[in-house]
């Protein structure tokens, strides 16, 4: 049997995708790259979803027969610069069918389109995470001002607020000034959580492997800490915590996740979110390339297995 390459599909201008391409190339993995920028502008898909391996994608004069690849790594994000944020029908249709074709593949897809849908609703995902064995902060999603006030009053160590949806928001502590704005909640619901004081821990699960980074920051949301004093360092999870991270990743139908946790003063971890398309390059630098090596190994090993991955995913 001839060796089969790994197909990487994403926008080559995007930092995480570019990092992945470079990392797998450095490792000597047999890879091919399909630039999503090319795909947006010109592509044809041919084949049938009953035989998804037969589907051929043509873009910029190159053909990708999906059955020729041992596995797929995808970052299906739209980074095109356009005054109109809505793709025209033809472009959107191609993108939909690309997602459908990847979702139907029997080979490993990291991550399979649709598998990360729970991330679109943080309260929904928080309940799922807790059900699968990770501790979560006390949480309240609401648009009822009185309920929000009650919840805040029941949090002696303070509370934070953030978006309900998967749209990125800057996590902030609830302050005195915010209490006077609660009547505006009727216009847009908010997710409140009891504040957990401690360092952030970011865990990347790749198959069965866990790679953790501890982040020390004075800000509630370290991603927006511009002080220059953010410290990132490798962190060792307990076996039980690592097992729980792998379990929740699998339960969400993912093989690669970025899990946001907080480490409290008693050493307990509290899970905030499971990202289905993790931007991991910064953490990979902290860990000396551990994450991308695991990712390369996972994508390579998938093609060696006789029993191919099932396209079935379960979020439950």
């Amino acid at each position: 049997m001839s060796p089969r390459p790994i197909l990487l599909i994403g926008p080559t201008i995007e930092p995480t995708f570019g990092h992945t391409v470079r990392a797998l190339h450095r490792e000597g993995r047999d890879i091919e790259v399909m630039d999503l920028g090319d795909f947006w502008s010109d592509a044809v898909l041919t084949g049938t979803l009953e035989a998804p391996e037969s589907i051929v994608i043509e873009t910029r004069g190159k053909e990708y027969r999906l059955g020729d690849y041992r596995s797929f790594y995808t970052r299906l994000v739209d980074l095109r610069q356009s005054p109109d944020p809505t793709p025209v029908a033809a472009e959107w249709g191609r993108f939909r069918l690309l997602s459908a074709a990847l979702a139907a593949q029997p080979a490993l897809v990291v991550n399979r389109p649709g598998a990360g849908d729970s991330n679109a609703s943080k309260p929904y995902q928080t309940a799922l995470i807790e059900r699968h064995g990770l501790r979560v902060p006390r949480s309240l999603s609401t648009n009822i001002p009185a309920r929000a006030r009650e919840f805040i009053a029941s949090c002696p160590r303070g509370a934070i607020y953030k978006s309900n949806s998967g749209m990125r928001s800057i996590v902030q502590a609830v302050g005195e000034a915010d209490l006077g704005r609660f009547d505006a909640l009727r216009n847009c619901p908010v997710l409140f959580q009891e504040r957990i004081w401690g360092d952030d821990v970011r865990v990347h699960v790749v198959g069965d492997a866990c790679h953790a980074v501890r982040i020390r920051s004075a800000e509630v949301d370290y991603r927006y800490d511009r002080s220059g004093n953010v410290v990132s360092e490798p962190f060792e999870l307990t076996p039980a915590a690592a097992e729980a991270c792998v379990r929740v990743t699998r339960a969400l139908g993912l093989s690669f996740s970025g899990i946001d946790l907080l480490l409290d003063a008693d050493g307990e971890l509290h899970c905030l979110e499971v990202n289905p398309m993790p931007g991991y390059s910064g953490y990979d630098h902290t860990l000396g390339g551990e994450i991308s090596r695991s990712l390369g190994a996972l994508l390579h090993a998938a093609g060696n297995s006789q029993d191919r991955a099932s396209p079935v995913c379960s979020l439950g």
Binding site: A127, V136, S139, L140, S141, T142, N143, I144, R147
Partner: peptide, 11 residues
């Protein structure tokens, strides 16, 4: 916004 709801998770 005439309809209020809350969903809480607590232990």
């Amino acid at each position: 916004d005439d309809f209020g709801w809350s969903f809480g998770i607590d232990g």
